[in-house]
């Protein structure tokens, strides 16, 4: 079988997250599925096309996989009509993952921007499940506006824990929002962590990553301790089609998660 052949996989649930964002829950119990936080799958809509979607969660020990999708393209828009009992094609998991063990015994700082929280959610859940492996756990999350905050209930649950520092901010808000207003980078200087002993995971739009990395470096976190997730056009996910090339990297297999210092030579070069 060709490696790009997807497997039909039933949808157990579809949940609306934001006005243009939804999560589909897939039943993968029939085949068994293991993945690492930060990896992605290719989801196929019969005859329409295929898109790379990071795994945003799982339930019941990997029996059910969650993918959070923003309806912005030719495949993701028609995916909005999917409902319980429908099927999508699935192949994966692909790519590199958040190196949880790098942060063992250290402060773990997770900075997410917008939909960038989705690929970080499994990392956060993993860290909170094995909370004793880390010193401080800090989650900084920024979105465009209050109604574009993802997984808000869950974020509130994380915030309710005494052993975790969670700060949420939005770029723009009206009078009815009582949280922080301002960019996610503003949360970095306010967070409590030991810079020299911190591992940071950052995911969001590339500009958000740039500014956040700078803020982390300003606080004294070294580039070797910062991990970022990159986005490029991924079509085949197996390193064959060439679309996701980023310098010498195929983001689909060498990424999407990179240690920042390894990207540093090309990170600020335009149009690489």
């Amino acid at each position: 079988m060709h490696p790009v052949v997807p497997q039909p996989t039933p949808i157990t649930r579809v949940t609306k997250e934001l006005s243009d964002t939804f999560s589909i829950h897939l039943d993968v119990s029939a085949r068994g599925f293991s993945y690492r936080p930060g990896q992605f799958n290719m989801l196929y809509l019969f005859g329409v096309g295929e898109v790379p979607i990071s795994i945003s969660g799982d339930r019941e020990q990997g029996q059910e996989l969650v993918h959070t999708i923003r309806a912005v393209g030719g495949v993701t828009r028609p995916m909005r009509t999917l409902k319980t009992g429908d099927f999508v094609g699935l192949r994966g998991p692909y790519g590199t993952y958040w190196p949880m063990e790098e942060a063992h015994g250290k402060d773990l700082l997770i900075a997410a921007g917008g939909l960038g929280l989705a690929p970080l959610r499994p990392a956060i859940v993993h860290a909170l499940t094995h909370r004793d492996r880390y010193r401080r756990v800090i989650v900084l999350y920024g979105a465009r506006s209050p109604d574009e905050l993802l997984f808000l209930k869950e974020v509130e649950r994380w915030r309710g824990r005494m052993d975790t520092e969670v700060a949420v901010t939005v770029d723009h808000a009206g009078d009815d929002w009582f949280g922080h207003v301002g960019v996610v980078t503003a949360l970095v200087p306010r967070a409590t962590f030991e810079a020299k002993d911190t591992v940071a995971f950052v995911c969001g739009p590339e500009v958000m990553i740039r500014f956040t990395v700078r803020e982390l470096e300003r606080r004294g976190v070294s580039r070797e301790a910062i991990w970022v997730s990159m986005e490029r056009s991924m079509k085949c996910a197996i390193g064959h089609c060439g679309h996701c090339q980023y310098g010498s990297h195929f983001v689909c297999k060498d990424g999407p998660v990179y240690r920042f210092d390894r990207l540093a030579p090309i990170f600020h070069v335009r149009e690489v």
Partner: peptide, 10 residues
């Protein structure tokens, strides 16, 4: 050169 695109259709 090995770059390709994938096209799905019905």
């Amino acid at each position: 050169c090995f770059c390709t695109s994938m096209e799905d259709m019905t």
